[in-house]
Amino acid sequence: MTSDSGTVREALLRLRQETEAQAAALDGDLRSLFEASRASNADDEHDPEGSTIAFERAQLTAVLDAARRRLAELDVALRRIDDGSYGSCERCSRAIPADRLVARPSARTCVACASRR
């Protein structure tokens, strides 16, 4: 592993740690929301706040799912660093531009291949 890949690995690990903390916080918030609504006699259908509670649950669930997907993508990126394939497009094997990797560190395809999806 080159020092450059070591630096990238450190950055990915930091990003993974931040994302993991965010996912844990979101999971706690979602559990608290479920507990609060379970403890309440409120019925989403007949409670004036019901649609807000349902929306908040759906929103938290979606954001938590996105954080978990991001963790999985970061894990793949870390494995790609370890096997030496990080920065190469999975489809065409060309180098992924540095700007793309800065914007999306877990990118597995170059811009051209990504736009063909």
Rank of each mutant, 00 (worst) to 15 (best):
E90G: 05
S40R: 00
R79Y: 08
E18I: 08
A25T: 10
Q59I: 08
F34K: 09
R9Y: 07
L60F: 08
A42F: 09
T52I: 12
G50L: 04
A11Q: 15
A21G: 08
R9N: 06
A36D: 13
A21V: 00
E73Q: 13
V8C: 04
L13K: 11
R57S: 00
V76Y: 00
G28T: 09
A25I: 00
D75A: 12
Y86G: 02
A98D: 14
E10S: 14
R94E: 15
R38D: 14
S85T: 15
A67Q: 04
A25S: 11
S32Y: 05
R69P: 03
R117G: 06
Q59P: 01
R38G: 07
E10Y: 11
E20W: 13
L33N: 04
A107S: 02
D4T: 14
T61S: 10
R16T: 07
D44P: 15
E56R: 12
R31L: 10
R104V: 15
I96Y: 06
D65N: 13
R94Q: 15
R16L: 09
M1C: 03
D29C: 02
Y86K: 06
E73M: 02
A25L: 10
V102N: 06
A62N: 09
Y86C: 00
C89R: 05
A107R: 03
A23E: 02
N41I: 07
L64V: 03
A112P: 04
T61Q: 10
I96D: 08
R79Q: 09
R14V: 14
C89P: 01
E18R: 13
A54H: 11
R68Y: 04
R91Y: 11
Q22I: 04
N41D: 14
D99K: 11
Q59M: 12
D75N: 12
R108P: 05
D29N: 12
A36E: 13
Q22D: 13
M1L: 12
A67I: 07
V76H: 09
A23I: 02
A58H: 03
Q17C: 10
S93F: 12
D83S: 06
S115P: 02
R70D: 09
C110V: 10
E90H: 01
S85Y: 03
R94Y: 09
A58S: 15
T52A: 15
L33D: 02
R104P: 04
A114H: 10
D4N: 14
Y86D: 00
A114I: 06
S5C: 01
S37I: 00
G28H: 04
R70K: 15
G84W: 04
M1V: 04
S32K: 11
R100D: 05
L26A: 00
A24S: 05
R100G: 09
D27P: 07
R9H: 10
A24W: 00
L30N: 03
R108N: 01
N41R: 08
L60R: 06
L13V: 05
G84P: 06
G87F: 04
C92V: 07
P48K: 02
V63D: 01
D29I: 00
A98N: 09
A77V: 00
A11F: 12
